[in-house]
Design a protein around this nucleic acid. Structure first.
Lengths: 340, 340
DNA sequence: CTGAAAGCGCTAACAC
DNA sequence: GTGTTAGCGCTTTCAG
């Protein structure tokens, strides 16, 4: 194959034009609106492009077009299966439509998230995907004021600023509690990370238990986010210290639940007889544990796909697009398997 | 707090200048070189910036500066713990230095990777992080020709085009084989994804077994990438069908190994007595399994950090920076725990 | 179907 | 210290 000229970094549209013997605009059209050119001209331009190894400068294009073709996404950390699934789906959906994904990680720190939003706005992202709904109102206003399409994920609000895809975390916690209560468990525990969404699930869980009126109790062990599987052992111990007769534990993600399953094995505790275990996420591993993991299914991937679609619909429709879908509940259903 | 004007999207440096009663450049300097301004002027400009909710257009800045402040990274999928750790560390390191990360996922498809590289070059990324070393020479040349700093990760080559951070996958496979052989196992298996790096590990594994001369055998079950934990059951079955007396299995990532541990439990097989299990990665879960997982430790995070550092060193040093470090072996050491 | 002119929003020399 | 003058590389109108 013909090797392109070495200095492709500095090849500008101008150079291509000269080599092809056409004007600047014609090259631009060859790249962006090939159908507007005479086949013969097009071929000549294309040949020049290949020969020179020309790579159009998309930033310059963005400036002229006033459309960056970039969408930003901020997650607490991508090193957490639930979020990485979302990011993966998002990247895919947007990529297929020609958008690029600028990724940011907040590390669960609000200040970092705000700083990232600022930079992303500077990049003139056309859309922004945030995790959670707890952002400062001023920040959200800033985003909207900038005319940037916004999707908040993994949680749902009463009055969304713009769009949301997620589920009701409180309700999710309640569903699990109800399930456990229904199985006759009275001494319940929750293991998770100390971050907003886990806290909400815990709140919902507690509320359901109180509403139940059987006098059941719930102990929680929330560890600093991000929660790691190898902390589960001590979390369980902490729970037991406070509630010796612990009968069931809800882990706010499947990886923690898997670790708990192993921990039970280590202790020689039969699951679910001695201790019932429920996870959350229904990731592939949940289908591979033994006993098979009962878990609250959250389709992290679905959240990403949905967020991508909503964003694209909005971006394509332009500002004109009506209120469209503002709030999508991807739901959270309990998948009863064998662990609890 | 004073709410910034609504139309911040369209606030340009020009507007700020007018409001602050200074010229265009002064505003630019207030943003980029505040130390060059008289304190009083600076304060006035900043006030105007806040009042208008001005967000500098970084794309325009990039165009003028010829420095995008963007680094691109392409991984097969971020929904795989090993890569997400790398991406996380990378984002962090680059972010701290003011760079943004443009993320791409190849889905293990070479064509997609090439297309992404093309787009990233169009965005004028200053650096590029790729996964693996198997890219087409033409593609690599194109990157270098564009003057973009390149780091290939997760694998090592004899003659790196630019920089590399990884480890020797063949050697890694051999280390595990040797370990297993040393424990007296003769009928070995490998479970992993059918992708370049796993194949190399398998090759190294096989080679070590043959070199051993004990007449040991190895069966492999490589599934289509990305490998999912819930496919491990059938993979094991396939292995057993071909090698009934199977004694040990090497899984090319910890999640698969954890799934295999559960599968053994399901079958009532004692680990490591009936079947020895070795993982790879040493992710947090490996420290939380029971029995505790023997695994080949790969510091995915370290790869990301290192790649980030090398990139930054190069970018800061400019082209002038000498050959610096071109090739970093993060190593792969076997962590002997209890599973095999 | 093709070209010429006028920016997109910002920064880097140079002057003052 | 601050302003003026030129672009960065590309995409539009608008003519022809």
């Amino acid at each position: 194959m013909p090797s392109p000229a070495a200095a492709s970094a500095s090849v500008r549209i101008h150079d291509v034009a000269r080599v092809a013997g056409v004007s600047l605009v014609t090259v631009s059209r060859a790249v962006n609106h090939p159908e507007q050119l005479a086949p013969e001209t097009l071929a000549r331009v294309r040949a020049a492009i290949d020969a020179l190894g020309y790579v159009p400068n998309l930033n310059a294009g963005s400036l002229a077009t006033r459309r960056s073709g970039i969408v930003g996404a901020i997650v607490p950390t991508v090193a957490n299966a639930v979020f990485s699934e979302t990011v993966e789906a998002l990247t895919q959906g947007l990529g297929a439509a020609g958008y690029q994904l600028l990724l940011g990680q907040s590390g669960y720190r609000d200040a970092d998230e705000a700083a990232l939003v600022e930079t992303f706005l500077g990049r003139r992202v056309e859309g922004l995907v945030l995790t959670g709904t707890g952002q400062a109102p001023a920040l959200l206003q800033r985003i909207c004021a900038a005319g940037v399409a916004l999707v908040q994920t993994w949680d749902l609000d009463e009055a969304p600023v713009d769009m949301q895809v997620g589920f009701d975390n409180r309700a999710a916690g309640a569903v699990v509690a109800t399930h456990l209560l229904g199985r006759g468990h009275r001494r319940l525990g929750v293991i998770g990370a100390d971050e907003p969404r886990s806290r909400q699930r815990l709140a919902g869980f507690r509320q359901a238990v109180e509403a139940d009126g059987t006098g059941s109790m719930v102990e929680a062990a929330l560890m600093p986010a991000p929660a790691q599987p190898d902390d589960v052992g001590s979390a369980l111990q902490a729970l037991i210290d406070r509630a010796p007769g612990l009968q069931a534990v809800f882990c706010t993600n499947d990886l923690l639940a898997a670790a708990l399953l192993f921990e039970c094995q280590r202790r020689g505790w039969a699951v679910p007889q001695r201790l019932a275990v429920v996870g959350m996420g229904d990731m592939a591993l949940a289908r591979a544990t033994w006993p098979r993991l009962t878990t609250l299914r959250i389709h992290g991937q679905r959240i990403g796909e949905q967020a991508g679609q909503m964003l694209l619909a909005r971006l394509r429709g332009g500002e004109a697009a009506g209120p469209s879908t503002r709030r999508v509940d991807v739901g959270a259903v309990l998948v009863e398997r064998d662990s609890g």
